[in-house]
Design a protein around this nucleic acid. Sequence first.
DNA 1: TAGTGAGTATGACAAATGTCATGTTTTTGC
DNA 2: GCAAAAACATGACATTTGTCATACTCACTA
Lengths: 199, 199
Amino acid sequence: MIRIVIAEDQGMLLGALGALLDLEEDMKVIAKARNGEEALALVKQHEPDICIMDIEMPLKSGLDAAEELKDHPCKVVVLTTFARQGYFERARKADVSGYLLKDSPSDELASAIRTIVSGRKVYAPELVDMAYDDENPLTAREQEVIKLIADGKTTKEIAKELFITNGTVRNYVSVILDKLDVSNRIEAISRFKEKGWFK
Amino acid sequence: MIRIVIAEDQGMLLGALGALLDLEEDMKVIAKARNGEEALALVKQHEPDICIMDIEMPLKSGLDAAEELKDHPCKVVVLTTFARQGYFERARKADVSGYLLKDSPSDELASAIRTIVSGRKVYAPELVDMAYDDENPLTAREQEVIKLIADGKTTKEIAKELFITNGTVRNYVSVILDKLDVSNRIEAISRFKEKGWFK
DNA sequence: TAGTGAGTATGACAAATGTCATGTTTTTGC
DNA sequence: GCAAAAACATGACATTTGTCATACTCACTA
C-alpha cells in the first residue's frame, strides 16, 4: 500500500485529489496539508512513501518544504500550474522525484506515483520543451525595475527606492523596452508576464 | 440520480472532481469538458441536471457559456478561483444557480449540488461580503479607453481608433484615474482588473 | 421652461516618460 | 593579468502623459 500525504492550498483540488487517489486499490491518502509548514509536520509524523506538493502555498512554499525533505526517505513530487524554468531548476536541485503539471490529465497522477515509488523519476514533458524557451533577457537590476513598474510605481518612486537618479531609471526602462521589443511600460509588463518571467 | 457535466480546463482538477463526485451514491459525472465551447455542446447533447463551470477557460469562458445556457433547463454552478465583483455580477445576471470558490473545502461541492438541484441557490459566503461592494464607476466610453490602454496602446493610437483628439483621450484617462483613485495608467489597469471589471 | 447633472469633447500647460550619447564599474574569457 | 563585454549610471533633449478650465449636448425634473 502506497501511503500518501498531499499538500495543496486550494481546498477543492486538495479534497478532489484525495478522492481520486483513494480510489486506487494500492494507495491511501493518510494526511492532507494546506501549506508547506503543515506538510513538513505531517510528513515527519506519518513517514509516508510519497508527498504530493503544490508550489505556491502560504507560510512555506512547496519548494522550501521540498528542500527541507531532501535527505528524508519520503519522496516528493511537485504538482503545480507553472512550468517555469526557475521553479523546475529549484525542484531538481532539491532532488524531487517528480514534477507534474496541473494541466495534465488526472490519470497520469496515479501512474506517475507508481513509477516514482518504484524508484524512477517523472517529469512532465512540457518541461523538456521549456528548455528551449527564450531566456529572460533582463539583468537582475532591470528585473527589479520592471517589477516596480508593474506595481504602478513612477520613475521618481523607483529612483528613490533603488537609490539611483531619475535618469538612470528612465534608462533602464528604455533598455527594457528595447530588449522586450515593445514601446511602452504597459506593453512591457504584458510581455514580461506572458513569458512567465515575473518571479 | 443527479447527472453532471464538468467544465474545467485544468486537467488534474477536472479528473479529480470527477472522481470526487462519482463517489457520491446519487451523482454521476456523464461528461467532462476542457473549455466553454465543449461544455455547451455536451450540455446540449446530454441534457444533464447540472453543469459545473470554471470561468477562465480557452475558446469560450464559463461566463459566456453560462449566459448561453440562461434559458436552458440545465442548472449552472460556477466554480472558480476568483471572488471578483465583476465575475459574480455577470454570473448572477446569467441566472446561475451557484457560485463556489476553489478555495473552499471539497466536501462543500456535493452538498451544494444537492441544494441546487432541489431548487435553491448557493453562493460562497466570501461573495456575500463583497456582493454589493462597488459598481464599475466608468462610463461606456471610459471603459473603451481603459481597454485600449490595457492593450498597451498609446494616447495617439487610441485617439485615432475612437475618432477623437489626443486631448480628449488624455482627458478620459484623467477622469479614469480620478474615478479609480490611482495615479497612472498602470495602476488603473491593475485596479480595474482586480475588481474584475474587464469584460 | 429653466435648471441641473452626466457624458462627451477640446486645448493649454506642467509633469512624467522615453531616447540617446557618454562614462564608470564589474564580469568574463583567454 | 588584461582586454573585451556586459552591467550600471548619468544628464540633455524630445515626446507622451496627466491636469485643468472650459464648452456643448442630451436627458431629467422642479
